[in-house]
Amino acid sequence: MKLTLRIWRQTNASDKGRMVEYKLDDISPDASFLEMLDVLNEQLIAADEEPVAFDHDCREGICGMCSLVINGTPHGPERNTTTCQLHMRKFKDGEVIDVEPWRARAFPVIKDLVVDRSPLDDMIQSGGYISAPTGTAPEAHSVPVPKPDADRAFEAAECIGCGACVAACPNGSAALFLGAKVTALGLMPQGQPERWDRVVSMLDTHDDAGFGGCTLTGECTVACPKGIPLDVISRLNSDYLKATAGGKKK
């Protein structure tokens, strides 16, 4: 395949950055998108140019490290697929492909396509856990969990923390990420004691980080490589309002 890439290049956080065009010949349709970038980087190194920096690690769609907005869509055109699992056969020979970093005030660009997603960790840190010091756990079967709850909690817990929801949201909101965690923990009996503190604390962190507010456009769930459903946001709202206006948070 022949391709023309327009890639965002930015030396560091203070650089203004710009799109730079690259031509590639002879890309295998069986290559993944990131392998295609590997090929580009090998060419750049051979030509004594700086290779393109991009985040990636497991390359099997689970670590959440890869990002990239491809032709205006986070993780590219294929649904429920991370960039690392996207293959070049999904593109046309001769296609022009735009590659950009996640864009959000909370995710400043570090270099080229690499952004800082630490606000996602900050949200978890502010309450996205169940306090269970090692050694204190009761026998696992002492609290049965209804299968539907466990299954739904799992569905929400599948979130890989990649930040595509933020990248896709016209408001730059991380509500899907937040809703997924609040739902996953809030559905388990073990998550109940901290449920109301958790949601308030996590939302405060979300808002302080400079993410936008959710207006239910639904773009996040479509971009989400795990297809986390939008109703987790409703649950986030419900828990937050019950915790605050409902006075459940003591």
Partner: peptide, 30 residues
């Protein structure tokens, strides 16, 4: 206030035209 917040949340816009994939024309007229 939410609209201003949204604008501030993405100070640098995407270069390529942002595609909408979620259904719902009404959403974009709000």
């Amino acid at each position: 206030s939410l609209a201003l917040r949204a604008r501030a949340a993405r100070p640098v816009k995407y270069e390529s035209r942002k595609k909408s994939h979620a259904r719902g024309y009404a959403t974009h007229t709000m």
